[in-house]
């Protein structure tokens, strides 16, 4: 936080420039891992951009991701690529506005369930529309692109995302969001338009998710609603972001890298016990790393200077507030 912005941005640019060289050294398997990591890094960071400060757990990640992917599937072969991406962005933004305006009044579990229900509703409606109206089950995505192109596009998107996140963190909006995360009632009383702030961030976060879906669509070649709107994507995004820690911009990345590698390894070596091991890993994270890896690192460095605050309060005792 004390480093000068120009220095931070220059360091970030250097890291991304180095990462752009990966396709020249990695083989096919390495590239697919790199794409998976870049994909989830954007999703988890975009998720944390909204959910970190506001503490709204959204399971709608894949709704936006799927909208992006489907826009590409429908328009990909008839329009030039930049316009397709633009169309995806418009679709995602519109959807996010509608969803955000109608739901951000909901809090806690209601928002969680709503976001999940919304995703399922969109998936069901798209399935029904495809079967009844267009008479297809799935669509083929044949675009002239390869792994390196997809990787570079994801990398570019990630760079924009980190820059945006960094700038928001230093802006009035970022400060407003931290106040909202601390206590929404207080935020309203000091004159913050909480709904507007939350809506702006929700739309922004959804925009990045939509674009990720659009970029990733050509990788599948064939997509149907069950693939494009697979709820597993939402869940994995949440797990990764929480493992990494959502209070810092770079936090989710610390969850994305180990978990992407772990999932890949589990899938390759224990396909039959994948779910069981996944569940155990998940429980361990919840019990041992409640603040995520980033939180644990922060705690470690803080504990040298001051003692731990007393946190032995029961959950039941702190809910007098309506």
């Amino acid at each position: 936080m004390t480093a000068r912005p120009a220095l931070v941005i220059a360091a970030g640019a250097a890291v991304f420039a180095a990462l752009a060289l990966v396709p020249f050294v990695a083989d096919g398997y390495g590239m697919s891992l790199a794409i998976a990591i870049a994909n989830y890094a954007i999703l988890a960071t975009a998720w944390a951009l909204f959910s970190g400060p506001t503490r709204y757990i959204s399971l709608a990640t894949v709704a936006f991701f799927g909208v992006g992917a489907y826009t590409v599937a429908v328009l990909g072969e008839v329009l030039p690529w930049p316009i397709v991406v633009l169309a995806a962005a418009v679709n995602g933004t519109l959807l996010a506005f509608v969803v955000g305006l109608s739901t951000l009044r909901l809090a806690g579990i209601y928002f969680v369930i709503f976001s999940f229900g919304l995703t399922e509703l969109i998936r069901q409606v798209v399935t029904w529309y495809e079967v009844k109206v267009t008479n297809t089950v799935g669509r083929y995505v044949f675009l002239d692109t390869d792994q390196s192109m997809i990787y570079w596009q994801l990398l570019g998107l990630a760079a924009i995302l980190y820059l945006t996140g960094y700038l928001i963190g230093r802006s009035r909006l970022g400060f407003a969001l931290r106040v909202i995360g601390g206590d929404e009632t207080v935020a309203r009383h000091v004159g913050i338009d909480t709904t507007r702030a939350k809506l702006m961030l929700f739309v922004l976060s959804a925009l990045f998710m939509t674009l990720t879906g659009a970029i990733m669509a050509p990788r599948w070649t064939y997509i149907d609603p069950a693939i494009a709107f697979n709820p597993q994507i939402s869940f994995q995004t949440v797990i990764m972001a929480l493992l990494g820690g959502v209070q810092r911009l770079w936090g989710p990345l610390l969850g994305v890298i180990p978990l992407t590698l772990l999932f890949d390894w589990l899938n390759a070596n224990f396909p039959n016990h994948y779910l069981l091991i996944l569940g155990i890993v998940f429980m361990l994270i919840v019990y041992l790393l409640p603040q995520g890896v980033a939180g644990a690192i922060g705690k470690l460095s803080r504990s040298r200077t001051k003692p731990e605050p007393e946190t032995d309060r029961k959950a039941h005792s702190a809910e007098a507030r309506p």
Partner: peptide, 22 residues
């Protein structure tokens, strides 16, 4: 461990989500 109801909700969702897989 949860300091308030919201934190308990998040924790319980995550823990039972892991339990679901197990």
């Amino acid at each position: 461990r949860a300091p308030n109801r919201g934190a308990l909700e998040v924790d319980s969702i995550l823990a039972t989500f892991g339990m679901l897989f197990i």
